[in-house]
Amino acid sequence: MTKNEYLAELKAHLASLSAEERDGAIKYYQEFFEDAGAENEQNVIEELGDPKSLAEKIISEINEGGAASSKYVPASPGYAGNGGKNFEEKPKRNENTKILIIILLAIIFSPLLVPLAGVILGLVAGLFGLLIGFFALCGGVVVGLIAGGIAAVVMGIGLLCSGQIMGLLAGGIGLIMLAVGVLLIIPFVWLCANVFPPLFRGLVNLISKPFHRKKVAY
């Protein structure tokens, strides 16, 4: 069988379709042959199977009206596919009762919900505050030690210049503070890089989780 014979036979078996559907299918397979190249003609014919069963396959697809469409269709609001009806019906009823129960519960517990929401909001804000506070504390310790150390050294030099021996003590303490402050920069930077971002991300994830769930569920 040649390509042209194959296509002619396919066309004959597609007689029950509308002219538009039939031409679309024939055009597709004609192009398919051309793109595969003349040297692959026999392979394509073999691969496609006999024209009659290919025609049946095409016709059954068209008559089903895309019943094999994806089951994800209902999940997207803007998507008005006509498929997936078979297995959509039962879960929908369950969904409806679920929604009804949720609404009833919401009405019954509404006096509780507002304060509860307040508590949760407060908790979340508190957690954020805690995190920021901790961050500020660590930063404050480092900056304070370095600034205090410099100040103490300057003061010590001043005291020494005016002939007071206490200046040595002040200067010594200042140097120690400065050293500890500079040393603490290393763990502080490490905290900034390794601990705060994951903590912050974790917190944000925790907050966004209930909203996210709703979106994915179907």
């Binding site: 597709y28 199977g49 290919l54 697809e61 068209i62 498929g83």
Partner: peptide
Amino acid sequence: MSESTLYPVLRR
């Protein structure tokens, strides 16, 4: 995948 599978998918 058979070469005959794609057309119905594209059409759908």
